[in-house]
Design a protein around this nucleic acid. Structure first.
Lengths: 192, 192
DNA sequence: CGCAGGTTGTTGCAGATGCAAGTATCTACC
DNA sequence: GGTAGATACTTGCATCTGCAACAACCTGCG
């Protein structure tokens, strides 16, 4: 796997001399990170619940499906994508299916497998909810971070992701997911 | 096809012209942020559970107490500090009290109030757990982020915090909390 | 003083999540 | 081909969390 970012730094961030102590000033960024996440994600969740009767996790699942080819995904990939346990995904899809937003399909290539497929109604609900959600991200997250700093955050968080789980399940053939929500003349199921 | 060549103009991060769309590249940092947090916090929680039978939230509460003057804190402040609902804090302190790690005290200045006070055993358990926890932070978080970038993350996350909750409950008179866990000859309530 | 309204913490209840165990299926090796 | 082990998902059970309702208390105003 590519170690691509060979930086010109003084030392690699992974190997530092002394063990971390409770008074190390580098703990401040970590705490800020934790608090910021807790506040933002709670707020986004509250907004989605209030305006669309939908949790943040449900939104994330619908979004993942909308960005996947054929609007369908295996349970496992879904679980990895939104960082949820297998059983968590089972129940989450249960709820979305009960609401008619996704449909369970048998996986043709793997008898054990199940796929969740976004329904038209699911896509519609996702698009509606995305207005609230994107407004929230813009307001709480992007509105607080200097544009120049977004790259740093993305790089750092990607590095964290790669480090915590040795691998990553990237899907190179997934096409451009950025248009999954775009209501333009991209594909059939338009928001009627 | 829209030209992605945006000029590098410096405008305030709070006021942007167009509403955020689902294909905006600024969504990538947000998603990376979400995923990184989910992975790191889960990992830290798993480690604490496995090695010290303690959740991350319990650790955070004990730590907050250890950093507070007198090793005690009102329920509300505790709730704000670790971003948990009131009832969540009630139950969390219930558990810690049942384990003998904190003790509930009546607040002398406010008859409604309750304070949680760290017990000696609580401090001891916290110190033990902190080895695991600090090791995890070093390994997963600090080991992934370039030292130069820590400041950016701290600033950004602080800005998010301030924006999401209009105010912040800063305690300027709380002294230097960084020594709360240091086993050295710092202050009175030492591990007898 | 006395009450209205706000604040603090706790409890009933419901929802979301994880682990461990179970079932069905796939893969590899004999 | 057949069996052992791995994998994919689901289910039972326990835990954690939040909202709404509640009780106790404080504050301010008449």
């Amino acid at each position: 796997m590519p170690t691509m970012t060979e930086t010109i730094e003084p030392y690699a961030p992974s190997e530092r001399p002394r063990p971390l102590t409770s008074r190390d000033p580098r703990l401040a960024p970590w705490r800020a990170f934790l608090t910021a996440h807790a506040l933002v994600s709670r707020r986004l969740d509250d907004d989605l619940r209030a305006e669309h009767q939908m949790t943040l996790a449900e939104y994330a699942a619908l979004l993942q499906l909308a960005e996947s080819p054929g609007h369908r995904l295996r349970m496992n990939q879904l679980a990895d994508g939104i960082v949820l346990s297998r059983s968590g995904i089972t129940r989450l899809i249960d709820r979305l299916e009960a609401d008619g937003l996704v449909a369970r399909k048998h996986c043709s290539s793997d008898g054990r497998g199940a796929e969740a497929e976004l329904t038209d109604q699911g896509l519609s609900r996702l698009r509606q909810a995305s207005r609230t959600h994107l407004r929230g991200i813009e307001s709480y997250f992007l509105g607080s971070v200097e544009p120049v700093d977004l790259d740093v955050i993305e790089r750092s968080c990607d590095a964290i992701r790669q480090r915590v789980r040795g691998d990553d399940r990237a899907q190179p053939g997934a096409g451009d997911p950025s248009e999954a929500l775009a209501p333009g003349p991209t594909r059939g199921p338009n928001p009627a």
